[in-house]
């Protein structure tokens, strides 16, 4: 089993696409996605796909990263394409497949050029206006940090409970693996809550 997170999609760089601030860039992606979905007919959609791939090259996103972004969708896209071809002919199939792939390429290019923490910061800033309805942006920011910090600790807990279950010959037992993992997760959360509390976080 994994002991840590796999490598993310983000690739550092200095292209114009890396330099656009995360918030406006996300806005661009949304607009581009709406435009792509609104397109009709096979050739405009294929053209949109071409533009999306062009931008990914311009942003110096390695093709294998684009491929990694696409991979989870391939099966669904293939089934959809085949279904549309069978039901409504090849133009519709091309339209659906090209649109889908273009959307994924645009989104992957965004993720590949935007560091996670930058985007999370942008989200926290974007929450500012919601303060009046009770949203506390600094609490949200703390939740992001806490979660990212907790991931390695939970990996460690999962690993240790798995080893312990194995040592007792219970590696196939759901209960021996998952229950201690969940219980230790709650205990860890309480300890973290106590540590936050002790440091006066939440008092302000």
């Amino acid at each position: 089993m994994r002991r840590s997170l796999p490598l993310g999609i983000y690739r550092p760089g200095s292209t114009i696409w890396h330099r656009i601030p995360a918030g406006p860039k996300l806005g661009l992606v949304v607009l581009a996605s709406i435009a792509v979905v609104a397109l009709r007919g096979p050739w405009p959609c294929v053209a949109a796909l071409g533009v999306a791939l062009g931008i990914s090259l311009w942003a110096r996103v390695p093709p294998q990263v684009v491929w990694r972004g696409l991979r989870p969708f391939l099966l669904v896209v293939a089934i959809l394409g085949a279904f549309q071809w069978w039901q409504r002919g090849w133009p519709v199939a091309v339209e659906v497949v090209a649109t889908t792939v273009a959307l994924v390429v645009v989104a992957t290019t965004f993720t590949a050029t935007t560091p996670t923490d930058r985007l999370l910061d942008a989200i926290v800033r974007g929450l500012g206006p919601f303060r009046r309805i009770g949203v506390r942006p600094e609490k949200v920011a703390l939740a992001f940090s806490l979660m990212i910090t907790a991931i390695p600790a939970i990996f460690e807990i999962a690993h240790e409970t798995r080893e312990a279950a194995k040592a007792r010959g219970l590696e196939r037992s759901v209960r021996a693996n998952l229950s201690p993992m969940a219980i230790r997760t709650v205990a860890h959360a309480y300890e973290t809550g106590a540590a936050l509390h002790a440091r006066g976080i939440g008092d302000d």
Binding site: E191, T192, A195, H197, R199, G200
Partner: peptide, 16 residues
């Protein structure tokens, strides 16, 4: 709590 600092047993759990 501003007066009292607290150090816990488990080092990893108090780093947030």
């Amino acid at each position: 709590r501003r007066r009292v600092g607290f150090v816990f047993t488990q080092p990893a759990a108090q780093l947030v």
